[in-house]
Design a protein around this nucleic acid. Sequence first.
DNA 1: TGGCCGCATCGAAGCGCTTCGACTCCTTGG
DNA 2: CCAAGGAGTCGAAGCGCTTCGATGCGGCCA
Lengths: 337, 337
Amino acid sequence: MVTLAEVAQHAGVSASTVSYVLSGKRSISASTRQRVEASIRELGYHPNAGARALASSRSNIIALMIPLRTDMYVPVMMEIAIAVTTTARAHGYDVLLLTGEEGPGAVRRVTGSGLADGMILMDVELEDERLPLLRASGQPAVLIGLPADTTGLTCVDLDWRATGALCVEHLAMLGHRDLAVIGEAPAVYERHTGFAERTLDGLRNRAAELGLRVLHRPCEGGYDAMAATLARTLDERPDTTGFLVQNESAVEPLLALLRQRGRAVPEDVSVAAICPDQVAVQASVRLTSVGIPAQEMGRRAVERLVAKLDGHTPDEVLLLPPHLTPRTSSGPAATRS
Amino acid sequence: MVTLAEVAQHAGVSASTVSYVLSGKRSISASTRQRVEASIRELGYHPNAGARALASSRSNIIALMIPLRTDMYVPVMMEIAIAVTTTARAHGYDVLLLTGEEGPGAVRRVTGSGLADGMILMDVELEDERLPLLRASGQPAVLIGLPADTTGLTCVDLDWRATGALCVEHLAMLGHRDLAVIGEAPAVYERHTGFAERTLDGLRNRAAELGLRVLHRPCEGGYDAMAATLARTLDERPDTTGFLVQNESAVEPLLALLRQRGRAVPEDVSVAAICPDQVAVQASVRLTSVGIPAQEMGRRAVERLVAKLDGHTPDEVLLLPPHLTPRTSSGPAATRS
DNA sequence: TGGCCGCATCGAAGCGCTTCGACTCCTTGG
DNA sequence: CCAAGGAGTCGAAGCGCTTCGATGCGGCCA
């Protein structure tokens, strides 16, 4: 391995000069800079990460904690992770991947060891057990997702409440009065994942304001679960004409089952989904949907974190506004006889 | 931050003693060890990663390079990534996430800076541009996927050739003579991704041996693409009774389209898939499939890498044997009139 | 013309840890 | 009873980098 000292010797300057060329923290004459840069290139020098971290107490690494669970739509997680990584690189940071498996202890380990300069937590629950440790550690962090108590935390998330409301408005405008909400798996609600509860909340409030009836049913993905859920729903509310799906692996089964029952989409029933755009356009019916801005969430989270690390302390909670794209799965409610 | 020296002072021993307690590289009396451990706990000491890396020239980090592309089944990538991370933790390593975006230069950067002790490359192509750099760097590495030339490399992969052959055998045994292979998107073949070509290869060879006819059609995911592909396939080979799908986002469209055309599964046509088990059981018809052992691949890759880092140099290429699970999408070919 | 300031550079002191040699006991075999 | 050797501990020398004075030097203002 080539070291700073070797570069310095090769360029005929002192080690500190090379260091300043690299960091730009002091002015260096053009001629010296060029000489040093030439030596760096010629010797193929790469600064040693450990030494740099030790001397500067900055690792230039940010930790990304992703959930272990697979009961939520994985591609979204992946997209966020990739957006985080590429954005981080653009700011000169690398990304350390942590899984939920290690538990809250991971926060302490990373914090304590100086492995990372800051962290990004995904899949934050309303009462997340990692938060007390986070707050105590004083580690710069950004959450993707919104806990119940956000004091002292920086969060980035889709505005789920507005998302729910937006969907209801869309269906209401089309004349639908009875809505069924096909939700995430029961486990998602049980562990109080913020986004699921908030969506429901926003959606129910708006429905109440507009005088619509809403039936909410959590649903595991797949055909069998969806079949049972649909049967029950139509039993309980035969007049349901609007479906709102917030569970990607229930989308296709629902469409197939509606077809089976002879309910045409969108003539007999309308379907709107909260899912990645890719899912919406690849489905057997092009779905009216509110997209999940995974990339933007990842990018914003990193930008916020980097700003914190640079000493700026920007706004605390950033909610991205939802966008509904009407496609062919929703239309005017059939007028009743 | 608490340092080694503070722990040492607190415990009334020298710094090196604390270090040896931590690493276990020299024998320490039980009483001293206990005293030191108590101090560590009491002070909440965590060794500084940078200092440790500098002194030992080991970062205890492994780099995982994942592809940026999203034309392949993302959940599999994610599952591998998670398996890699948890296995790595179990061996005392953290995982640094690199995306393909940075290009082959990432290999050099990580190697040169001592950021990681070794790396795992995913989505390796037959003639991967990262390999020359990897070989040159001498960095311990494990590939998930098999390049054309494996000399000097350690690789872990599903035995795709055997996978293709296994599927053909299954359908042949059921009496099918005309097979259609619905493959990955054309782009996947164009960039010479090993697994796609190998599967095809294994499958064609076995089909030739058994006297079956095979039609291979790459296919983008989604309904429209699948509809076009299916129409063309049945035009060209009306007698096709066996379908083999190696593209998760074509599975459900295919099943729906077959239904539309009045071809019952498995009575009229059989369908086998190469996909994660979860996809196979969640489909509208429970699919006969060869699973993709994502977890095992991730786990094995880490184990191989850790062995290398520990100085053992185990076998170079590890091919996992495929397993076919018969479900309800395949059955005996209808006897011809 | 003298004093000052700013630019460019250097030297040295760490950052917190690992590791090697050395030292002190204490046991054990001859 | 002594030499040999092992167990347990310590001190010190780095690992490669950053960063804080200190230094030398030329230009500028009064």
